[in-house]
Write a protein that binds this DNA or RNA. Structure first.
Length: 154
DNA sequence: GCCAACGTTGGC
DNA sequence: GCCAACGTTGGC
């Protein structure tokens, strides 16, 4: 089992939105970056765990934990001309973009803030992808030791 | 294959 | 809203 971090802008889709979804499960759609897509398609498996990260908001940070309920399958929003995530270069015969289904597992009582994570950038989280300069990936791997350490911050 | 232009991300 | 950093596109 592997560990991941998934970014979402809470103004668009927050951990509370996931909590309200049927079965607390949603497709993680709208990823439009090839590196992130490749992880959704090839690397992230049913049963893996991921941090739900809130980005581009007042208090960026980790809001909770989701489990992967279904592995990679085509992102239907790419086929929908009315969707903000529509991509005319993707079609059902040859999908360009993929989603996984996520199910809410733990909603933290408070956000583990980016500031708190960054405070460990020289020690426990030296190699954490999220803290790398200029990082913009919306899907990224989390090492087991990083995962375990971050859980101690909650 | 190079690289300038452009668009997006995301913290501040 | 700003802007640094980065990804993607497209002309050559």
């Amino acid at each position: 089992m592997n560990h991941w971090l998934l970014k979402s802008e809470p103004d668009s889709f927050s951990i509370d939105d996931l909590a309200k979804a049927p079965g607390k499960t949603c497709a993680w759609d709208g990823v439009r970056n090839f590196q992130a897509r490749n992880m959704l398609l090839d690397s992230i498996k049913k049963g893996d765990l991921a941090f739900f990260y809130h980005s581009s908001c007042a208090v960026p940070g980790i809001a909770g934990i989701v489990s992967i309920a279904r592995g990679g399958y085509p992102d239907a929003t790419a086929f929908d001309p009315k969707s903000h995530h529509y991509d005319p270069d993707s079609n059902k015969d040859s999908p360009r973009w993929y989603v996984v289904d996520v199910k809410l597992k733990v909603r933290f009582k408070r956000i583990i803030t980016l500031d708190e994570l960054r405070a460990q950038a020289q020690t426990k989280l030296r190699d954490f992808v999220l803290l790398r300069r200029g990082n913009r990936l919306s899907v990224m791997p989390v090492a087991r030791k990083e995962w375990d350490f971050i859980l101690t911050l909650e």
